[in-house]
Every structure is written in structure tokens, then in C-alpha cells.
């Protein structure tokens, strides 16, 4: 990934779910912020815009699709990677319909997530 340290916003209501990814990103020298639902994520984007967002779908208050739509309205250039255990074909469709830039299913190797983030930021 890029040599420049990135700020990655991780959004998931289950703090354990993205913990391995958080550990990996930190080990690679990046900064991570955690949000436990879509509303908190939107507030964080407004307060401290990240370079990239990794977002779960099934969350209380505001789900990942709704949060993605809202974030794309206020910060359209920040890439959003949807990372979910929802595997229906319609989930992928709604993710892109909501403005997401990439869609991955859990479980996923965090190395693949790191590669995908690099691709989204145009830094192979």
C-alpha cells in the first residue's frame, strides 16, 4: 500500500468483526478510527474526513447502505468499501446503488482488504 500513512474509518456495530483488520492496518503504519453505526460514521466524516471507509451493512440506527448514501452526498470522493456477511445478489446491487466503490463479503482475508483499499486509492 501507499507509503503515506492513511486514515481508515472502520464502521461496524460488532467491534470484534473488524479488529483483525484494524490491527493489520495499524501494524502497516496507518491510522484507524472506529464507528459503531452509520450515524456516528457520518459525524466522523464531517469532523475528520478519512482517506477511505470500510463499512458493514447490518447496523442499528442507520445501516451501511443509508450511511454510504449520506456520506457520498457530503464527501463524494472518499472511497467506500462495503464489507458484509450479506451474500444475496441484491446486496451487491444495493451497495453500488448506494454509491459504494467496492463490495466484499465476510469472511475475507484482511490482506485482500488492504489490497482493495490500495486499488481504490489508485496506489497498487
Amino acid at each position: 500500500m501507499s507509503t503515506r500513512p492513511l486514515h481508515v474509518l472502520l464502521v461496524d456495530d460488532n467491534p470484534k468483526a473488524l479488529e483483525p483488520l484494524e490491527i493489520r492496518l495499524k501494524a502497516l503504519g496507518h491510522r484507524t478510527t472506529l464507528a459503531h453505526n452509520g450515524e456516528i460514521a457520518i459525524a466522523m466524516v464531517e469532523r475528520d474526513p478519512p482517506d477511505v471507509i470500510v463499512m458493514d451493512v447490518t447496523m442499528p440506527e442507520l445501516n451501511g447502505y443509508q450511511a454510504c448514501r449520506a456520506i457520498k452526498r457530503i464527501a463524494p470522493k472518499i472511497p467506500v468499501l462495503i464489507l458484509t456477511g450479506k451474500t444475496e445478489a441484491a446486496d451487491r446491487f444495493w451497495a453500488f446503488q448506494s454509491g459504494a466503490d467496492e463490495f466484499l463479503n465476510k469472511p475475507v482475508d484482511p490482506a485482500v482488504v488492504v489490497k482493495t483499499i490500495a486499488a481504490l486509492l489508485g496506489k497498487p
Binding site: 483483525p20 493489520r24 501494524a27 447490518t58 456477511g85 465476510k106 469472511p107 475475507v108 482475508d109 484482511p110
Partner: peptide, 20 residues
């Protein structure tokens, strides 16, 4: 199935961190 995938994700995540 969704919840099981999420749990598998945690296992894969930690195991991959060890592997790497």
C-alpha cells in the same frame, strides 16, 4: 448464515494476521 460468516471473518482475520 450471516452471523456465522461474521464469526468466520474474525477467525480468518486473526489467522491471516498470524500467517503474515
Amino acid at each position: 448464515a450471516h452471523d456465522a460468516r461474521v464469526l468466520c471473518g474474525i477467525v480468518v482475520g486473526y489467522a491471516a494476521n498470524l500467517r503474515d
